[in-house]
Simulated scan of single mutants.
Amino acid sequence: MPRSTGLREHKRRMTREAIVRAATELFTGQGFARTTVADIAGRAGVAPRTFFLHFASKEDVLFHHVERYVEIALARVAALPDGTTPWEAVQRAVESLVDALNVAGTNIDALAPVRVQVARESGGMPPSLAVRLHGVQTRILDAIRARHPGLDPVRCAAHLGACVGAVSAVASQGEEPPSARTDAMRHAIVLASAGFTAHSGAPTL
């Protein structure tokens, strides 16, 4: 990689991190609704137009972590041993997304409570999360289909969607301590997998 390209990428990453840091401070300090893009840009030391080079909206900042976590899920799928069924691969991939949110049972994402509050106030899944989850599911599905070329894509997509939906439903509750919520998410994945395979003709996990 040319040095100039590397420097530009480094500057871009540092700017993005500054925006996320500023937004986190403002969202947790004065609330999501009271925070504007101009507030975030000012705290980060950038122009509002620079903010929009990195994020489509202030809501989009709430889900800045998703891309990093999907890379972990894809790496886990790639590392699965030969003989792993596609249904097991789906479950392992979604479990890895849950595991990436936590280290030793401690939630590492300071914006998690803000996301829960926004979801509750909006009465459903925020649009930015819906878009990102679609991207996550597409990338994971492509990775699993690459391992299993003859896989029925519709059935696999349905299974993956069931697991991701179950995790999202548990995450939106936000009442339990982080470690308990993680356990509940993992249990939801097992239940979604069992329910799907029992009614789809797929091998039981």
Rank of each mutant, 00 (worst) to 15 (best):
L101N: 10
V154R: 11
A41I: 08
T138Y: 06
I189R: 08
A157C: 03
R132L: 11
V98L: 07
L26Q: 05
V46C: 09
V98W: 08
V116N: 08
D39A: 14
R12S: 09
R92V: 11
L80Y: 12
G195T: 04
F52E: 02
A41Q: 05
G135K: 03
A93G: 11
R21L: 12
A75Q: 15
T204G: 13
A93Y: 14
C163A: 15
A23G: 07
T182P: 01
A112G: 04
I40V: 15
G31W: 04
I140H: 02
T36W: 04
N102V: 09
P2D: 15
S122G: 09
H64P: 00
R76D: 12
M1E: 14
V190N: 13
F196I: 04
G105D: 05
C163P: 02
G123K: 08
L151E: 10
L111E: 03
R12H: 04
V98Y: 07
F52G: 01
T106D: 05
R3M: 06
A146R: 14
F55D: 08
R181P: 00
A104K: 00
S96C: 10
G29I: 10
L129C: 06
V136F: 12
F32Y: 15
L191K: 04
A104C: 00
A23W: 11
A162I: 00
A75I: 03
L74D: 14
A41L: 05
D183N: 00
A22E: 06
H148N: 02
T50F: 14
H64F: 09
